[in-house]
């Protein structure tokens, strides 16, 4: 019996993938041995990230790690992947929303319609600004060309931010060629890990989302061909990958704020930042009005955040 071979492409470049996906895939390959091997490719390596969904759905690539937003998935849930503004406060919110508040079922249904298997969603880091110039107020954001996720960009454009989408691997160079003034794509751990801390000087401590929601996906046909134990092994490795990121980001965010030397921290006062949070409430309603499925997801987000509010500390402060 010959070895099953999969090609998997992640949305992350090599430096980031070293943490967010490679350990899990290495583990999978070690355990699966001769039965199955997954070859991992990085951002834009085989196909550009914008074509990732199509390539997986068509079978050019067997599996994908990405958020729904960046890979432009043609589903009702696309806007909620990546950074949905203020959808979550902590990275633990994401798995709770998926496993206990019913997002898994919705995602599963939506992706089944388009020939793709949604395997598992997990949390990444919060969404902060890293910029060349300091940001002390909302006015400082005006006119800044910023690399960010599509939906986050749509939301931020009302504050004068000019969202730019470029291939992930080109961001560092784009900062230097002046194509970009900053990134709103990650927390500080990623800024240091992937080298963006070397090309930016300031880190804004306010965030527009506490955790990025990203998932592992596979081509439906290819997934169905796998024997059950390999499917289970793949799920276990995905979960391991989610777990790794929980502590890697959580610890990294704190320690780099405290000990990092490459970026100066700036903050927009809470009272002013409240405008952004208010705008997010409006944005949620706009999105909910677009379709029944979106309305359902927004409802879940609202219910979840209300519950957390009621639960009080440490779930929500103030």
């Amino acid at each position: 019996q010959s070895t099953i071979k999969w090609r998997m492409q992640t949305y992350a470049g090599a430096a980031l993938a070293e943490h967010v996906v490679k350990p899990a895939i290495d583990m999978f390959n070690t355990i699966a041995g001769d039965r199955m091997q997954i070859e991992l490719f990085y951002a834009d390596q085989l196909v550009p990230t914008g074509e990732l969904f199509r390539a997986m759905q068509r079978g050019t690539i067997d599996a994908v790690q990405s958020d729904d937003d960046s890979m432009a998935s043609p589903t009702e849930v696309t806007v909620f992947g990546g950074y949905f503004p203020f959808g979550s406060r902590y990275s633990l919110d994401v798995p709770v929303l998926f496993n206990q508040y019913g997002l898994n079922e919705i995602w599963d249904e939506e992706y089944s319609k388009v020939g793709v298997k949604h395997i598992s969603a997990g949390a990444w880091d919060p969404c902060h600004f890293a910029t060349k110039e300091p940001i002390h107020s909302l006015a400082d954001l005006k006119g800044k060309r910023v690399f960010t996720f599509p939906t986050a960009g749509r939301f931020l454009s009302q504050f004068g931010v000019v969202p730019v989408t470029l291939p992930w691997e080109d961001i560092e160079v784009a900062m230097q060629t002046g194509e970009l003034d900053g990134v709103a794509w990650s927390g500080i751990t990623e800024d240091y890990t992937v080298g963006w801390a070397d090309v930016t000087d300031y880190f804004l401590t306010n965030n527009i989302s506490g955790a990025w929601a990203g998932s592992f996906f596979a081509n439906q046909g290819r997934w169905n061909e796998l024997p059950e134990d390999l499917q289970t092994l793949f799920r276990v490795c995905c979960d391991q990958s989610h777990y790794y990121r929980q502590w890697w980001y959580w610890g990294g965010e704190a320690s780099l704020r405290v000990d990092g030397t490459k970026m100066k921290l700036t903050t927009i006062p809470d009272a002013e930042w409240a405008q952004v949070e208010e705008a997010a409430v409006k944005f949620w309603d706009e999105i909910a009005a677009e379709s029944p499925t979106k309305a359902k997801v927004v409802e879940i987000f609202k219910k979840y955040n209300a519950d957390m509010q009621k639960a009080g500390r440490p779930y929500r402060y103030g």
Partner: peptide, 12 residues
Amino acid sequence: LGYLERSSTAWR
């Protein structure tokens, strides 16, 4: 026609 593909940018 089905779901019309948009570019994965904010301009879409």
